[in-house]
Deep mutational scan, measured.
Amino acid sequence: MQIFVKTATGKTITLEVEPSDTIENVKAKIQDKEGIPPDQQRLAFAGKQLEDGRTLSDYNIQKESTLHLALR
């Protein structure tokens, strides 16, 4: 499925993911596309910060959802 990640600079990244993917996997995909190390990424959805060990389906993130990326 496709999801979107909006960066602090307003850029939107499109990612191909599975509901079973962990947040860690998603951060690795962002690193592949943007070169941002996962340990510098903070992802949020619906106002909640997402934890590495959880999956997209844990957070009820569905196709075409938009996550927000902040850098630490």
Rank of each mutant, 00 (worst) to 15 (best):
M1Q: 04
M1A: 03
F4H: 06
F4W: 12
V5G: 01
V5D: 00
K6I: 15
K6R: 12
T7W: 07
T7Y: 10
K11C: 04
K11F: 12
K11R: 05
T12S: 08
I13F: 05
I13N: 01
T14P: 10
L15I: 05
L15Y: 02
L15V: 05
E16Y: 11
V17W: 02
V17M: 11
V17S: 04
E18Q: 12
E18P: 10
P19L: 14
P19F: 12
P19C: 03
P19E: 11
P19Y: 08
S20N: 10
D21E: 12
D21G: 05
T22Q: 10
I23C: 02
I23G: 02
E24T: 10
N25R: 12
N25G: 09
V26M: 04
K27F: 02
A28C: 04
Q31C: 04
Q31S: 08
Q31N: 13
Q31A: 15
D32L: 14
E34R: 04
P37A: 15
P37Y: 13
P37Q: 06
P38D: 06
D39Y: 08
D39K: 11
Q40M: 09
Q40F: 06
Q40P: 03
Q41P: 01
R42L: 12
R42Y: 11
L43I: 11
L43P: 01
F45M: 06
F45A: 04
F45Y: 10
F45E: 02
A46W: 06
G47F: 07
G47C: 03
G47L: 05
Q49Y: 03
L50H: 00
E51C: 04
G53N: 13
R54G: 14
T55C: 03
T55D: 04
S57A: 10
S57R: 13
Y59P: 00
N60A: 10
N60V: 06
N60M: 15
N60C: 04
Q62E: 12
Q62R: 06
K63F: 10
E64L: 14
E64D: 07
S65E: 13
T66D: 04
L67F: 05
L67K: 01
L67M: 06
H68S: 13
L69I: 10
L69Y: 02
L69V: 12
L69P: 01
A70F: 07
L71G: 10
L71E: 15
R72M: 14
R72T: 06
